[in-house]
Simulated assay, not measured.
Amino acid sequence: MTRTRARDDARRRALAGDDSRAASNALLDGLREGRFGPAAWGRFAVDTTARSILEARKRPRAVVEATAVHLAMAALAHPRGRAWVLTSWLMTVTHLGMLEERRTLGAPNLLTIARANLPAASARLGGAVPVLALATDFVDGKLARGTGTVTRFGTQGDYLSDTALWTWFVVTHEPSTAWRAITFAAWAAPVAALAAVSFARGGVVDLPRSAWVRPAAVVEVIIGARAIGRIVSRRRDARLERGGAPT
């Protein structure tokens, strides 16, 4: 009983503290301790919601920034894409504790969030999606490192954004089955495996970025270049057809 009480006290302190990783570990440990049963999931939902509200209240400006960028992307989105934008907004405002000591999102994270929502706006943006995806992925990281604003929110948000975007992109636009499989292996599979291991161990497990992000980034560039090449080829063919049409 004493050990259980001490563990519960430690979990409450972690959830109320400023260390987002400790809070995540406490939440995952509670799930594992409850053997992932209905009661454990209920407690997880309550504790996660309370933690998210606490961290959002500390960062009202970040909430406003997140809402503004999502409203802008919703305005660009096809009606069917607005559910994607809403999901992204919920993911953002419930993970603001990962900003750590920062109280605002800042330009790098806003670029990352905008990139994550490009699929929702693809009907309007068309062939610009891969170009914007590659450009913002290059700029946000450079900007964060250059301004000393790297956070867990930005680091994890960056690769989750890329995972969602490029997985969607190859499913909807990549004609090669082989490249679709390679993209899944480079992005979606590691994220799923990492999440599964974190839940199983009852604590956050980080994948070495050099072991994953660099190969995944190469795949991202290749997929983007292939898409841009197809766009250029279609436009060239269209010009040739117009030029060869009878007058």
Rank of each mutant, 00 (worst) to 15 (best):
138 F>T: 13
42 G>D: 13
139 V>S: 04
13 R>H: 15
194 L>T: 13
130 P>C: 04
8 D>K: 07
145 R>D: 13
179 W>D: 02
35 R>E: 15
100 E>K: 07
190 P>Y: 13
219 V>Q: 01
69 V>A: 08
190 P>H: 12
223 I>R: 01
9 D>W: 05
183 T>N: 01
163 T>H: 08
162 D>W: 05
49 T>V: 15
17 G>F: 07
46 V>F: 14
211 A>P: 02
90 L>M: 12
241 E>Y: 03
241 E>M: 10
187 W>I: 01
64 V>K: 03
99 L>S: 01
190 P>W: 11
12 R>C: 04
222 I>R: 02
107 A>Y: 10
98 M>W: 12
36 F>G: 09
222 I>W: 07
49 T>W: 15
129 V>A: 04
147 T>Q: 13
216 A>M: 08
59 R>I: 03
128 A>E: 10
29 D>S: 15
127 G>T: 07
81 G>P: 02
115 R>D: 03
198 S>Q: 09
214 R>P: 00
154 G>K: 07
85 V>A: 07
144 A>R: 03
161 S>K: 03
158 D>S: 11
202 G>Q: 04
1 M>W: 06
222 I>Q: 03
31 L>W: 13
67 T>I: 14
32 R>N: 13
92 T>Y: 02
212 W>T: 12
155 T>F: 06
54 L>V: 00
218 V>W: 05
143 L>C: 06
156 Q>S: 12
34 G>M: 10
122 S>M: 09
107 A>P: 03
162 D>K: 13
141 G>K: 09
30 G>W: 07
186 A>W: 00
176 S>R: 12
33 E>R: 14
104 T>F: 04
36 F>R: 08
1 M>P: 07
161 S>Y: 06
117 N>D: 15
197 V>S: 02
85 V>G: 04
98 M>P: 00
239 R>W: 08
112 T>K: 02
50 A>P: 05
37 G>C: 14
33 E>H: 07
236 R>I: 14
87 T>H: 03
227 A>W: 02
245 A>C: 12
112 T>I: 13
193 A>N: 05
192 A>F: 14
92 T>I: 08
191 V>M: 14
238 A>Q: 12
221 V>N: 00
196 A>D: 06
159 Y>A: 02
95 H>K: 08
106 G>N: 04
144 A>W: 10
30 G>C: 11
143 L>Q: 07
202 G>Y: 05
112 T>C: 11
176 S>D: 10
47 D>V: 05
15 L>M: 05
240 L>P: 00
69 V>F: 09
122 S>N: 09
131 V>N: 01
119 P>S: 11
35 R>N: 09
106 G>D: 07
14 A>E: 06
7 R>T: 08
96 L>I: 08
40 A>H: 09
203 G>H: 11
179 W>F: 09
55 E>D: 15
177 T>D: 10
19 D>W: 11
172 T>K: 11
212 W>N: 15
173 H>A: 14
179 W>T: 00
111 L>E: 09
71 L>V: 15
71 L>D: 06
105 L>S: 05
58 K>W: 13
240 L>Y: 00
7 R>E: 14
116 A>E: 14
86 L>W: 11
70 H>G: 02
125 L>Y: 09
182 I>S: 01
34 G>S: 12
220 E>P: 00
174 E>C: 01
194 L>N: 15
42 G>K: 08
1 M>V: 08
77 A>F: 02
20 S>E: 10
27 L>M: 13
99 L>G: 01
236 R>S: 10
